[in-house]
Nucleic acid binder design. Sequence first.
DNA 1: ACTTATTGCTATTTGACATAACAATCATAT
DNA 2: ATATGATTGTTATGTCAAATAGCAATAAGT
Lengths: 162, 162
Amino acid sequence: MAKFAAGGGDAGASPIRVFDGTLRSFAGYNMKRAFNLVQADLARTLEPFGLRMMTFTALALIVDNPDMSQSQLAGALAVERSNLVTIVDDLEKHGWITRNPAPNDRRSHALRATPDGECLCEKAVSAVAAHEAKLLGGLQASEAAALISTLRKIEHSATGDA
Amino acid sequence: MAKFAAGGGDAGASPIRVFDGTLRSFAGYNMKRAFNLVQADLARTLEPFGLRMMTFTALALIVDNPDMSQSQLAGALAVERSNLVTIVDDLEKHGWITRNPAPNDRRSHALRATPDGECLCEKAVSAVAAHEAKLLGGLQASEAAALISTLRKIEHSATGDA
DNA sequence: ACTTATTGCTATTTGACATAACAATCATAT
DNA sequence: ATATGATTGTTATGTCAAATAGCAATAAGT
């Protein structure tokens, strides 16, 4: 999908190494590069399950939060409600979740994973975990933990979280 | 652009906190969330300069690699050559770079930043650095360095770099 | 000289994502 | 109770980035 790699591209016979030292000092640049690779690997991992990154994330959240509404899910996914419809449709058509009537609000749908959906989610989570472990294999366990911790700090800092 | 935040969404009066513990254990999930916020801040920072993330990155690479070709730049940016045309057009129309004839190859263009382009690049780099420093203000200096180091390790691991 | 590959480019398509509007329903204030 | 406004899910639409196919000009290999 993405060949990627600065200077690692096969762009011709020219052997010049592209210098990106200025950009390398930015955390954002390194985040984008690393994430692109992780995302590509994730897509390949999920494809055999019939899942994309978005549908996988949505399914995992529905499994962990039974009877949540589409608005809540959209908020959690940082997706517009209108765009969520397609995602939920996809999961529902495959029989992995159902749209149930919400007891207190006849407008909203209580999303619930089916046994099939839970089973698929479990398998997909395991597969993703395995692939990520392979991708992060060169890291110390403490390093991986520090990475996640630091990323969450950035997220809290940017959202002005309490 | 992106409201974001799991459970932080204003999705209704329902006070239920969306549980995303399963996904939180994945580095990729945390990377996506953190990067989305960083990217949004970056876009806001670059907008006054008339730059987008892609054009900014392209300009910085051209400044650091005078006379590089479009193919080389496309490789470094992980963008198709066809999509790069628009980006280079943008930079050229603003007078920040020029397409010069390459000495050894009459097909390719030697991309070079103009004095205006270099000046703008310098200012933009400073602005981005300042914004990123603010965004990463809550981190120890060693923590930020470790973040970049770890991200590069992941990148090397995924690309099978030597 | 002939074939093949590369460069920059155009055109087209796909997909992600935001916006606008809608009927149904809820909530609130008279 | 009723009128007003807000929210939910949905459809339709527009916008923008990224992928694909193909092209003429040029280069490289045989």
